[in-house]
């Protein structure tokens, strides 16, 4: 059987909110390592990889590796029924085609369980090689979300350019053009407000803002976002999940023909 218990159940609610708009159906892989997911968006342009390590849960039992296919919109509907302070337990018995979500209020005076049907999903698992990135930007996640939102009112794509001056986000459209430059700023009172740019080589890549905006749904999970870029490689936009793992989005760059 498989069982996990997460006292900070709101984390799981936030994780679902950050992937459900990008992916419709996905296989969750349960193993002794943890609870993970890898899924592509329907147009195969973006990929999302989630890992929640087993040590991060208050209780984690996985007798044998298990794949649970779930419709993420339905899963999000069920997790929405959990209170923000609720403890969430996910349970699945071997050989059944359902998963149970149990929600306990902090004072244990309300206990709910929701059973959801699992589905068979034929999904392609991709091998993601470890890459050396030419530029790595760490910045406040809310700032990145704001930039993506602001630029999407100007154009459909963002050009992200890292030089020794800093990182430039540019968009162009029918009404005009916009450039937002963020400089390295490590001298802040709180580390989560810092912008750190590690650059081996200057790099410039173009991405669809629709996807970037979708990735920023993960902003409530982490104060900082890490953006890793190399020429001719997908960008990686990473949000840490409270010391227990991460959610990483990979987006293929747009190329000029």
């Amino acid at each position: 059987m498989f069982e996990l218990r997460l006292v900070q159940g709101s984390l799981l609610k936030k994780v679902l909110e950050s992937i459900k708009d990008l992916v419709n159906d996905a296989n969750f892989d349960c193993s002794s390592t943890g609870f993970s997911l890898q899924a592509m968006d329907s147009s195969h342009v973006a990929l999302v990889a989630l890992l929640l390590r087993s040590e991060g849960f208050e209780h984690y039992r996985c007798d044998r590796n298990l794949t649970m296919g779930m419709n993420l919109a339905n899963m999000a509907k069920m997790l929405k029924c959990a209170g923000n302070d609720d403890i969430i337990t996910i349970k699945a018995d071997d050989g059944t085609d359902t998963v149970t979500f149990m929600f306990e209020s902090p004072s244990q005076d309300k206990i709910s369980d929701f059973e959801m049907k699992l589905m068979d999903i034929d999904s392609e698992h991709l091998g993601i090689p470890e890459a050396e990135y030419e530029a790595i930007i760490r910045m406040p996640s809310a700032e990145f979300a704001r930039i993506c939102r602001d630029l999407s009112s100007i154009g459909d794509t963002v050009v992200i350019s890292v030089t020794k001056e800093g990182v430039r986000f540019s968009a162009r459209g029918d009404i005009g053009a916009a450039n937002i430059v963020c400089r390295q700023n490590a001298t802040v009172d709180k580390p989560e407000d810092a912008t750190i740019i590690e650059m081996q080589e200057p790099v410039t890549l173009t991405f669809a803002l629709r996807y970037m905006n979708s990735f920023t749904k993960a902003t409530p999970l982490a104060e900082q976002v890490t953006i890793s870029m190399s020429s001719d490689l997908p960008v990686v936009v990473e949000y840490k999940v409270a010391g227990m793992g991460y959610i990483r989005y990979y987006l293929a760059p747009k190329i000029e023909e």
Binding site: M40, V45, L47, E124, H125, L126, A252, I255, E257
Partner: peptide, 14 residues
């Protein structure tokens, strides 16, 4: 014309 590359072309299939 811009062309979006597919993620499958970057990563190896398992």
């Amino acid at each position: 014309v811009n062309q979006q590359q597919q993620i499958t072309s970057f990563f190896s299939k398992k």
